[in-house]
Protein backbone atom coordinates (compact mmCIF):
# COMPACT_ATOMS: atom_id res chain seq x y z
CA UNK A 1 0.00 0.00 0.00
CA UNK A 2 1.34 3.46 -0.89
CA UNK A 3 2.00 6.25 1.60
CA UNK A 4 -0.99 8.11 0.17
CA UNK A 5 -3.24 5.11 0.75
CA UNK A 6 -2.21 4.59 4.38
CA UNK A 7 -2.65 8.33 5.00
CA UNK A 8 -6.14 8.16 3.48
CA UNK A 9 -6.98 5.08 5.56
CA UNK A 10 -5.85 6.80 8.76
CA UNK A 11 -7.92 9.88 7.98
CA UNK A 12 -10.97 7.76 7.20
CA UNK A 13 -10.45 5.79 10.40
CA UNK A 14 -10.30 8.96 12.48
CA UNK A 15 -13.56 10.18 10.93
CA UNK A 16 -15.21 6.82 11.61
CA UNK A 17 -14.04 6.80 15.23
CA UNK A 18 -15.37 10.32 15.81
CA UNK A 19 -18.70 9.39 14.26
CA UNK A 20 -19.15 5.94 15.85
CA UNK A 21 -18.07 7.00 19.33
CA UNK A 22 -19.84 10.36 19.14
CA UNK A 23 -16.68 12.25 20.11
CA UNK A 24 -18.31 15.65 20.16
CA UNK A 25 -15.82 18.49 19.76
CA UNK A 26 -13.16 16.25 18.19
CA UNK A 27 -11.97 16.76 14.61
CA UNK A 28 -9.88 14.54 12.36
CA UNK A 29 -7.09 17.12 12.63
CA UNK A 30 -7.10 16.97 16.44
CA UNK A 31 -6.25 13.25 16.48
CA UNK A 32 -2.59 12.50 15.84
CA UNK A 33 -1.75 9.22 14.13
CA UNK A 34 0.20 7.97 17.16
CA UNK A 35 -2.02 9.48 19.88
CA UNK A 36 -2.89 6.82 22.51
CA UNK A 37 -6.55 5.86 22.23
CA UNK A 38 -6.97 5.48 25.98
CA UNK A 39 -6.17 7.36 29.18
CA UNK A 40 -4.28 10.58 28.56
CA UNK A 41 -4.74 10.31 24.81
CA UNK A 42 -8.21 10.14 23.31
CA UNK A 43 -9.67 9.03 26.66
CA UNK A 44 -11.58 6.00 25.38
CA UNK A 45 -12.80 3.28 27.76
CA UNK A 46 -13.53 -0.46 27.70
CA UNK A 47 -16.98 -0.02 26.12
CA UNK A 48 -15.36 2.02 23.36
CA UNK A 49 -13.10 -0.96 22.59
CA UNK A 50 -16.22 -2.99 21.82
CA UNK A 51 -17.41 -0.20 19.54
CA UNK A 52 -14.05 -0.20 17.76
CA UNK A 53 -14.23 -3.98 17.26
CA UNK A 54 -17.69 -3.59 15.67
CA UNK A 55 -16.45 -0.66 13.56
CA UNK A 56 -13.49 -2.62 12.19
CA UNK A 57 -15.69 -5.59 11.37
CA UNK A 58 -18.57 -3.70 9.77
CA UNK A 59 -16.69 -0.93 8.00
CA UNK A 60 -13.40 -2.58 7.07
CA UNK A 61 -14.27 -6.29 7.20
CA UNK A 62 -11.51 -7.04 9.70
CA UNK A 63 -12.25 -9.12 12.79
CA UNK A 64 -10.41 -9.10 16.11
CA UNK A 65 -10.82 -12.58 17.60
CA UNK A 66 -8.01 -12.67 20.15
CA UNK A 67 -8.17 -10.20 23.09
CA UNK A 68 -4.36 -10.17 23.23
CA UNK A 69 -4.30 -9.05 19.62
CA UNK A 70 -6.74 -6.24 20.51
CA UNK A 71 -4.27 -4.83 23.01
CA UNK A 72 -1.72 -4.38 20.21
CA UNK A 73 -4.18 -3.19 17.59
CA UNK A 74 -5.95 -0.53 19.64
CA UNK A 75 -2.92 1.46 20.72
CA UNK A 76 -3.45 4.28 18.22
CA UNK A 77 -5.02 5.12 14.87
CA UNK A 78 -1.70 4.17 13.24
CA UNK A 79 -1.71 0.65 14.73
CA UNK A 80 -5.37 0.18 13.81
CA UNK A 81 -4.69 1.27 10.22
CA UNK A 82 -1.69 -1.06 10.02
CA UNK A 83 -3.85 -3.97 11.18
CA UNK A 84 -6.61 -3.15 8.69
CA UNK A 85 -4.07 -2.81 5.88
CA UNK A 86 -2.52 -6.19 6.70
CA UNK A 87 -5.78 -8.12 7.12
CA UNK A 88 -8.46 -6.92 4.77
Amino acid sequence: MSTDSITTLRQDLKAQIISHLNLEGRTVESIADDMPLFDEGLGLDSIDVLELIVLMDKHYGVRIADPKQGREVFQSVATMADHIQANR
Binding site: H20, L21, I47, D48, L50, E51, V54, K58
Partner: peptide
Protein backbone atom coordinates in the same frame (compact mmCIF):
# COMPACT_ATOMS: atom_id res chain seq x y z
CA UNK B 1 -28.76 -6.44 12.16
CA UNK B 2 -26.38 -5.52 14.95
CA UNK B 3 -26.52 -3.17 17.92
CA UNK B 4 -23.92 -0.89 19.37
CA UNK B 5 -22.21 -2.22 22.53
CA UNK B 6 -22.25 1.37 23.76
CA UNK B 7 -26.05 1.28 23.57
CA UNK B 8 -26.37 -2.24 24.97
CA UNK B 9 -24.67 -1.34 28.25
Amino acid sequence: NHASPGLFV
